[in-house]
Design a protein around this nucleic acid. Structure first.
Length: 437
RNA sequence: GUGGAUAUAGCUCAGCUGGUUAGAGCGCCAGAUUGUGGUUCUGGAUGUCGCCGGUUCGAAUCCGGUUAUCCACCCCA
């Protein structure tokens, strides 16, 4: 053998997933799929690798810088997808004629960004996107909000806030004052509101963005967190665009409430900007109340011109993206991850060395009845097998030796409750079903 | 991409101004207990001190580089 070993390692920002993490990760994915499908979204998939020109140009300079980009073996200029929205635009432009509009799809996929890492920020991570394209209706905006809400609830969260904004509001305000060219700078500054406070933001708007003090104060009058829709209307008397945005927000809040979304989970927040330049209307960001610092775990919005680069056909859309791996990091931080590392709830002990066939016969019967069952592979002493079951997170251990086989019964040990009971083989499946509920 | 901090056993960390065989707690393994797990007791194993190089009689300790992680900026899921 070679005496020089290769160091086992992974790239910065890339990670291995152990069973205890992966079990949760797959459960989150299953939940997301279930919720998306329940609203009628259909699955699609697209390649991880695209022509670089497909991915550049739409997300802005920042995303171009973060692309993993290289030449393939045929000399083509290619890049790893940076998100799932731009590939959707390409996909929709390519297949528009077969899709039928409006088109609702979901897409769970890995994306890659060459940015610096931090907790909850990786270079490879999974996004769970859902979008509705081909309609300008406020109904689609509402449905997007409902999906975000129901998704979070289905994932087991209760304390979260969906912050809602509409890009027209700020754009309208700035346009009315001839400040349209300063939009990006203004957004960047007011995005820091929660971190650095009102005064610092005004300072920055004046010194770095170049607004006058009254203009900066006007911007802050609508961007501050306590602002209400009525405040917005008052500030936007001379901007039709801005008032349209406020009207959209009002409709969204009203219909969401009518549809049964608890009002305390929604917040108006004109300061959320979203970096990606393609959003044109409604914008969503979702924060966990118990861990806001990790950032938005589900973001999205309305983009009315996404496919413009690829087709002359008008393809507006609205949707959002769940950051599965960031959510996972948040759950780890909040101690919401279980420690089970097996998907099988039942372990059958290999107790009597001559009964291997009997143990596996029972395992197969129980699997047919829908249980996850593992048979311990070696006939080692019982204590060791139980310890294994305990550590792996099996909930039930089934044990049978000569005594049990004589009475056609199984000892059922509940590892969590530390109880044991002898159950006739005929009743076993029913007994397990109730105790595993 | 910019600035800063950190890197010692599976985990959390100690190791003072460089000095012989690098430590603790938890965990792990074995036994007490050859039909029963998380408690207790007894015993045991564990480390290229992130990696590469330099200074030195001598480096976990000092210096340089490198890689990774964390924090801030930027940005974002």
């Amino acid at each position: 053998m070679s005496d020089k070993l290769i160091q086992p390692r992974v790239l910065k920002g890339f990670r291995d997933y152990l069973p205890s993490t992966m079990l949760v990760r797959e459960r989150l994915m299953d939940t997301a799929r279930r919720v998306f499908r329940s609203y009628g979204f259909s699955p699609i998939d697209t390649p991880a690798l695209e022509y670089a020109e497909v991915l550049t140009g739409k997300g802005g300079e920042e995303s171009d810088k973060q692309l993993f980009r290289f030449q393939d073996q045929g000399g083509r200029d290619v890049a790893m997808r940076f998100d799932l929205t731009v590939p959707l635009a390409r996909f929709a432009a390519l297949h528009a004629s077969q899709l039928g509009l409006p088109f609702k799809r979901y897409h769970l996929g890995t994306v890659w960004r060459g940015e610096n890492t931090q907790k909850g920020r990786y270079r490879e991570f999974m996004q769970c996107d859902f979008d509705t394209i081909g309609t300008l209706s406020p109904g689609a905006d509402l449905e997007t909000l409902l999906v975000i809400h129901d998704l979070l609830v289905a994932l087991g969260f209760e304390r979260f806030t969906i912050r809602v904004n509409n890009r027209m509001v700020l754009n309208g305000l700035l346009a009315a004052q001839g400040l349209s060219d300063k939009t990006v700078g203004v957004l960047r500054s007011i995005d820091k509101l929660a971190k650095i406070g009102v005064e610092k933001v005004i300072e920055e708007l004046v010194e770095r963005v170049g607004l006058t003090t009254p203009q900066a104060e006007k911007v802050l009058s609508i961007a501050r967190p306590e602002a209400t829709l009525d405040d917005l209307d008052a500030a936007l008397v001379d901007s039709e665009l801005g008032r349209t945005g406020v009207e959209r927000l009002r409709t969204l809040f009203d219909t969401a409430t009518a549809a049964g979304i608890p009002r305390e989970r929604l917040a108006l927040d004109v300061s959320i900007a979203r970096g990606l330049d393609y959003y044109t209307g409604t914008i969503f960001e979702t924060f966990l109340n118990d861990l806001p610092g990790i950032g938005s775990i589900c973001s999205g919005g309305r983009y009315d011109n996404l496919a413009d680069l690829f087709t002359k056909e008008k393809l507006p859309g609205v949707g959002a993206s769940l950051g599965l791996d960031r959510l996972l990091a948040a759950m780890e931080e909040l101690n919401l991850l279980g420690d089970a590392s097996t998907p099988a709830q039942i372990l059958i002990a290999y107790f009597d060395a001559n009964r291997l066939g009997d143990y596996h016969a029972l395992a197969r019967t129980l699997r047919e009845a829908g249980f996850g069952v593992e048979v311990y592979p070696e006939a080692v002493k019982l204590g060791k097998q139980l310890q294994y079951a305990d550590r792996k997170g099996h909930r039930i251990a089934l044990i049978a030796g000569s005594q049990e086989f004589e009475q056609a019964a199984w000892q059922v040990k509940n590892l969590k409750l530390k109880t044991a009971e002898v159950v006739p083989a005929a009743n076993l499946a029913a007994y397990l079903a109730t105790s595993l509920q």
